[in-house]
Design a binder for these strands. Structure first.
Length: 292
DNA sequence: CAGACGTGGAC
DNA sequence: TGTCCAAGTCT
């Protein structure tokens, strides 16, 4: 059986069942694709949709974002989470203006060199914005390939070189077709081959799925415990940043003192925001970076 | 390389 | 109600 059978079945399913997302449309620019990929890192589509629309309306090009302040990028990021992504996306825009004439580069290595662009995002942009043939491996694809192709109930926690090779072998040879297969795999993983309760009855790959064929064995390995949030520095960072986002300019340190009672932890969280470049100190007051 | 890094919704 | 999860990156 040709290895591209999975890809062709996935593409047929995608053509009939894919969600109509604006960054997938014919009007989507490489910049729009890049913005969507960064926003979608660890954040669900439903929350990204309105943020992406607002972001693209305000900053339709990398140069437009590069000309604005980090503070405005952090504000527009809203409550998508992981606000360092907003800062890095702006730094990425600055880098594209400086290195690439304000264009999103099509070359994989040039993409990888940009701030906030890693193994996944670089390949996603090269494939989805430029139609190149690269394996695009995210958590959905890892899970789908682990099950369908390898018969395992789950994938490893991070993308490995082996994952890239395994996935590349599933792709059709024609570049645009390969890119379509990649987005189809991702969509299948997101909607059908889900982590908790996969909808095998609706899966177009069910006849070729090694995991299904072996009776859907349960995971045996050690389960990683989910990351804690309540009481962590991350929660305190979130509370501090919420105050600064809502303010129009610098706020007194005494106002930040109100968000968390533990002085040691609050100071540590604030120091980390300063170190990340998200926040700046002006005497006894604090503000989002560039929000003088 | 394990851990840090936000937030909200589903079960 | 608490657990688990959502298109990763960086150090």
């Amino acid at each position: 059986m040709p290895t591209t059978d999975l890809a062709e079945a996935a593409i047929r399913w995608y053509d009939a069942n894919a969600r109509d997302l604006p960054w997938r449309g014919p009007d989507a620019t490489p910049w729009g694709v890049l913005v969507s990929e960064v926003m979608l890192q660890q954040t669900p589509v439903s929350r990204v949709l309105p943020a992406w629309e607002a972001w693209m309306a305000r900053w339709p090009t990398p140069a437009a974002l590069a000309a604005d302040t980090p503070a405005e990028a952090i504000r527009m990021w809203g409550r998508l989470g992981y606000p360092r992504r907003a800062m890095r996306l702006r730094e990425c825009a600055v880098a594209m203006v400086e290195r690439h004439g304000g264009e999103v580069p099509a070359n994989l290595d040039e993409l990888l060199a940009l701030p906030g662009v890693g193994t996944y995002t670089a390949r996603a942009v090269a494939a989805f914005a430029y139609g190149q043939r690269h394996p695009v491996v995210d958590t959905n694809v890892r899970r789908l390939v682990a099950r369908a192709s390898q018969g395992e109930p789950d994938a490893g926690p991070t993308t490995t070189a082996a994952d890239l090779v395994t996935t590349e072998e599933l792709l059709p040879l024609e570049p645009a077709r390969a890119a379509r297969a990649s987005v189809a795999f991702m969509e299948l993983g997101a909607l059908i081959c889900t982590a908790r309760t996969p909808k095998c009855a609706d899966c177009p790959l069910v006849g070729a799925c090694a995991w299904r064929a072996s009776g859907r064995p349960a995971s045996t390995g050690p389960t990683r415990r989910p990351q804690q949030y309540a009481g962590t520095d991350r929660q305190v960072r979130g509370l501090l940043l919420a105050v600064l986002r809502a303010a129009t300019g610098p706020v007194p340190g005494t106002r930040l003192d109100l968000v968390w009672a533990d002085d040691v932890q609050r100071d540590r969280a604030l120091a980390s925001l300063l170190a990340d470049g998200l926040v700046e100190r002006h005497g006894e007051r604090y503000a989002l970076a560039g929000d003088v």
